[in-house]
Design a protein around this nucleic acid. Sequence first.
DNA 1: TCGCCTTGCTGAAACGTTGTAGCAACTTCT
DNA 2: AGAAGTTGCTACAACGTTTCAGCAAGGCGA
Lengths: 382, 382
Amino acid sequence: MTATPSEEGKVVALDSVVSRQGDRSGRLSTGATAAASSRRGNVTLKDIAAVVGLSTSGVSMALADHPRIGQATKDKVHAAAAELGYVPNSAGRALRSGRSASIAIVVPNTGQHVFGHPYFMHLLVGITAQANASDAAVMISTNPDETHGVAAYEKVLRSQAASGAIIASASINDPNVNRMLAAAMPVVLIGRFPHQPNAVSVGVDETAGAVAITRHLVDEHGLRRIAHISGPLDHQTAIDRYAGFRRALADSDHACTHTLAVGDFSEESGQAAARDILDSMSDVQAIFAANDEMAHGALLEMRARGLRVPEDIALAGYDDFGVSRLTTPGLTTVRVPAESLGRKAAELLFDLVAGTIPQPTHTVLPVELVVRESCGAHPFSE
Amino acid sequence: MTATPSEEGKVVALDSVVSRQGDRSGRLSTGATAAASSRRGNVTLKDIAAVVGLSTSGVSMALADHPRIGQATKDKVHAAAAELGYVPNSAGRALRSGRSASIAIVVPNTGQHVFGHPYFMHLLVGITAQANASDAAVMISTNPDETHGVAAYEKVLRSQAASGAIIASASINDPNVNRMLAAAMPVVLIGRFPHQPNAVSVGVDETAGAVAITRHLVDEHGLRRIAHISGPLDHQTAIDRYAGFRRALADSDHACTHTLAVGDFSEESGQAAARDILDSMSDVQAIFAANDEMAHGALLEMRARGLRVPEDIALAGYDDFGVSRLTTPGLTTVRVPAESLGRKAAELLFDLVAGTIPQPTHTVLPVELVVRESCGAHPFSE
DNA sequence: TCGCCTTGCTGAAACGTTGTAGCAACTTCT
DNA sequence: AGAAGTTGCTACAACGTTTCAGCAAGGCGA
């Protein structure tokens, strides 16, 4: 194969690919691949056009498999494109089509607390998998400072760097998110947003998960005095999990006593909550924390007091993002299918970008009860 | 403030901002912000130009603070831009400037194994923090299938969707990575790449970390019969940690016996390696695993055999990405500053994109020994 | 009064892509 | 043989941005 940069700097003759119609340059040939990859200022349609002796539109149409382009020409173009290592310029394409090939994943509440959470990673895995399938890129967008007028992640959409966004863990009343929804930007929310009935969202059945785990404690292990450590109650997830806990107790055939301590989903708050509970409620038989991190905090507090888990007191968490598997004893928990959540959200977003509005707007994925040691030896398994 | 879409669909009169030169439309006015944000097909320079009665070039130069534009004009333009909620179109800008405002973070070895690792999240936090500071977006790029000619992450660079890339956890001989390096693309590698002396890379002093932890076992705890569970030995990190382990023993004043088992950084392989070690080496006093996950696997194996940690046998890991804090006992380990690593990598990448080649090309960040319970009660603390 | 500098802006071009209108050549039908 | 249709391509425009050359108007010294 031959490729020689001409005097115009851009034209490349590629004889082995083109049907040989006279070597216009006649220079010494070098490897085409090397020439292509070492060239700064990438290979464009114009380069291919020069090689196969076509117009740029012809090349574009050939690559797009337009019916009005002859098969022989298409073959030549494809061969030349492959040879030169042509990759379409995303800016040119985005500018022309008015649509970028990227989607954004947005984490409004910046900082370690949310961003560094394993939940987010699983989400990311699901989203990128789905995006890869659609040949789309994924951008990460956070908000460095709250003060600025337009949030950084809104800019990503407005600048059309991304054609749509998946918003993870937005607070219910984020004004930026509301504005994006109001502007009918292609946005998929992760979580349940009862106050945004028209927003497209994906969530899990939090309440059902909490019901399942609470029932397990009551029915399988015969526990009757149960405390719940909830997350912040302006957080829909925390509300739903707490609601499930109460519903399960209310629906139970057994008379149960319960109490509530509020945490903030952090391990420290879980430990503090457990301290309160153990100080105030006598004979607590079980603690159900609204996530695994708080459950781990509670575990530390119990251990500090010499309480054995599960012999003296049972413990359960929620999420199953890794923490619950590592502790001793392993935590009984509810598995939130974060990867599926991400996958589904991306799928919906692509629909939305394509113009179809999913019905119903809120998708609910099932959760799964994961029984480990912390809730006590299973009566039927011993 | 008033803003009324004219019959031409794009022109917006903005009286409060412009010097009032006759209301050309005279329609009922609505809130400008609402009008701007509800408009589909975003606000462009042309819209601002129409409002302030300027050419698009004038507006562009005003926003860029060009010295040849009058201050009064600049003020008007800025006011109008703010009022309309102007956000520059990234495609237009990228196309014109030949440079995108994004960087990519690349994870060549696809899949859960690497991608879902907490290490990656910390890296991501650091990278995004630095990118935000430079007003750049971050793209995530993986490789869905190995088979295709051009790797997905190479496409990201070639398509100029990102102006540079940070490559995390590349295998030493990834041909795609080599090609990107050879093509002089702006790429920063994370890790140590002795065979790529010209590549810009950031790593931690793995050997020093392994030396520190091994010395701690030998000198502080008086352990003499020590096994190492390494990672795969075609992995530079695994090599360096193993080298540090051996160097520490060789440099020690005490005669120590050691053995090696090779894992693949997974918990299962750590458990299997511990099984081999415990079966073959008599009176093992300590196991140093090359990462925390393998250490956790080893812990499970010891527990299964009724061995107490650290009373019967000491244990140490490497990484400190969360696992080591959660186990019982907590793992003595070496903290890898992943977030700093990401931050530094992004910083170097921006230099590289700007055209300056950092010297020296390889940056080494320090690691920190984290002593927890798994290596035994500290002689001086009891 | 003329040349020259400064100020403040405009027009045009370019980046790479895609789509549409149109043109030339050939085929087919009447 | 001429009309009509088909095939295969080209020219041009447009997306939004930035930059450069240049132009008009005014100030200023000679």
